[in-house]
Amino acid sequence: MLAQRAAWEGPRWTRAVKPNPAISLQRSEGGEMKIGVVVFPGSNCDHDCQHVFKDVLGQYVEMIWHKETLLAGLDAIVLPGGFSYGDYLRTGAIARFSPVMGAVKEFAKSGGMVLGICNGFQILLEAGLLPGAMLRNKSLYFICKDVFVKVETAATAFTGAYESGQVLKIPIAHADGNYYTDPVTLAAMQANAQIVLRYCTPEGKVMPEANPNGSLDNIAGIINPEGNVLGMMPHPERCAEVMLGNEDGKLIFLSMLEALKGNKKQLKMVGT
């Protein structure tokens, strides 16, 4: 992994952005993680994710066009939000057959961290990397607003920097976020603490009134049993820096980096 990182010379595919010196100054010293952000035709939150990891958190980011089939040397992968393939047929239904998804599945199977946000979550469901499916929002509206979610467990690689029970103000922007799964799978997820984020009131009460889209059990985000694949409908990348007036989502990304550092330490210990 480390050797591959040294050989990496820069993003293969990226939008030309003028560097902002004020942001560059905030870069942390240890920009040692290499995060892959997958770009599907129709992704539109890819650059927001890139910005958070690269400019806010000072890590390497590689934009991965969906035609890629090799994901060498990456520490984590993000499937960003958007409208891949125009949401045709079903959200995420066509993106899951993109060439890159075979490699994403392999990466996840080998224990690699995969974060799916909004459309990324929908793609993870269609790909079978997470259980369940998305239905149209109960109201039939596309909902774009700040909501409140409760971090049900901080004992995951994606929420380790939060406190269990912490309430986050975080935006959602979707028409198909009404999570559904069969009762057996739901019970198993509840028993395994796989429901990581749930819609709640500003005070942290999980109740039907706080559910924006009709999602089963107020589910806003779930994790796989192995703990390395998380899908969430809210957009943490849209509230990850002071300039935007809300930093509640930043710790999702920081948690990932902390977990990755921990993994590396473990790997080093095993190697020595």
Binding site: L89, A93, I94, E126, Y180, D182
Partner: peptide, 8 residues
């Protein structure tokens, strides 16, 4: 495989 999501 594609046309229907048999979960729902």
């Amino acid at each position: 495989k594609l046309l229907a999501n048999t979960i729902i």
